[in-house]
């Protein structure tokens, strides 16, 4: 059993997401610690890619903030290496970053030789090796369907990491079988069609998606649109083993960021205000984290009582 499986072993898991480096590296590390204090069982850390096709406006903006703050895969791994939190960490990113890592030297060499042919040095292995070194337990790669995931799955097996696949409301039959054969750690149940983003209600597709996954033992974590403790409760009561929450948390970071920049542009002495703001944002994140975790636990109690 991996650390990710274990995180789901004693009750429903709360799995928050933040983009690392949003709005800057130091603050975002502080925010991750706040989520850990708030009861996170697993933390998904976003490594920003310039073309995040699966993300809604909230996380797109986070990606822009992080990239303009200078985030790179190398800085991401260096930062994770220093991060001391209890919750196991999962890296969420897009395949081109996984594929290019560590391949650039090989690539420019082959370019010189042949004028830019496909780079033999590129591939997911160096990325996975470095991730394992800094203590990452698994990956979510939203633009990598099971069909193209062979090399990454292999590298994950080699270094003992989990590869978490997303199951969509449109995933049925053979596709579902194929994905469930390849996924490990947990399965990411996409609650609704579309892109990431906080929603006020729980998707009615959630129950049906969970039913389709019933015969597999792997933990089922539901994400896409969950923003409140009440929603977390409903989702867990419907049979989820965990809830994944991203945009609702990123919204708090975004609000804090715009507040901080207003303060800065208002000619107030900067350092203090911004410092306070990071703490205030971290407090708000911790508060919402506790609410979401409580909601998940309440949902589990209800699910339990309905079963008995």
């Amino acid at each position: 059993m991996s650390r990710l499986d274990e995180a789901f072993a004693d009750g429903p898991a709360f799995v928050p997401y933040l983009a690392l480096g949003d709005p800057d590296l130091e603050s975002s590390l502080e925010y991750v610690r706040a989520l850990d204090r708030g009861g996170a069982d697993v933390i998904e850390l976003g490594l920003p890619f310039s073309e995040p096709i699966a993300e809604g406006p909230t996380i797109q903006s986070a990606v822009v903030r992080s990239l303009s703050g200078g985030m790179t895969p190398t800085k991401f791994f260096d930062a994770v290496e220093t991060l001391d939190v209890d919750a196991p960490l999962v890296c969420m990113t897009y395949y081109n970053l996984v594929y290019q890592f560590g391949g650039s030297e090989a690539r420019s060499a082959s370019e010189d030789a042949s004028g830019g042919t496909a780079s033999e040095g590129a591939g997911p292995r160096p990325f996975v090796e470095r991730a394992a070194e800094v203590g990452i337990e698994g990956f979510v790669v939203p633009d990598l369907p099971a069909e193209e995931a062979g090399p990454l799955r292999e590298a994950c097996d080699e270094f003992g990491l989990d590869l978490i696949f997303i199951v969509a409301p449109t995933t049925r039959g053979e596709r579902l079988e194929r994905i469930m054969e390849r996924t490990s750690g947990y399965v990411y149940v996409q609650a609704r069609l579309g892109v990431t983003g906080a929603k006020a209600d729980v998707s009615d597709q959630t129950g049906a998606s969970l039913d389709r996954l019933d015969r597999w033992d792997l933990p089922k974590a539901v994400g896409f649109g969950i923003s409140s403790g009440e929603q977390a409760r409903e989702v867990v009561a419907a049979g989820a083993d965990g809830v994944i929450v991203g945009s609702a948390l990123v919204d708090i970071v975004a609000e804090g960021t715009s507040a901080a920049s207003q303060t800065a542009s208002g000619d107030v002495a900067e350092g203090h205000e911004n410092g306070d703001s990071t703490e205030a944002v971290a407090d708000r994140l911790e508060t919402l984290a506790r609410e979401l975790k409580r909601g998940a636990l309440a949902g589990a109690e209800r699910a339990q009582s309905e079963r008995t």
């Binding site: 496909a118 939203p142 633009d143 369907p145 069909e147 193209e148 997303i166 969509a168 449109t170 995933t171």
Partner: peptide
Amino acid sequence: GEYGGQYVPEALMPAIE
């Protein structure tokens, strides 16, 4: 050759099939 493939979110895969 090595180019092409289907690197899209899972939600789109059934539509692409």
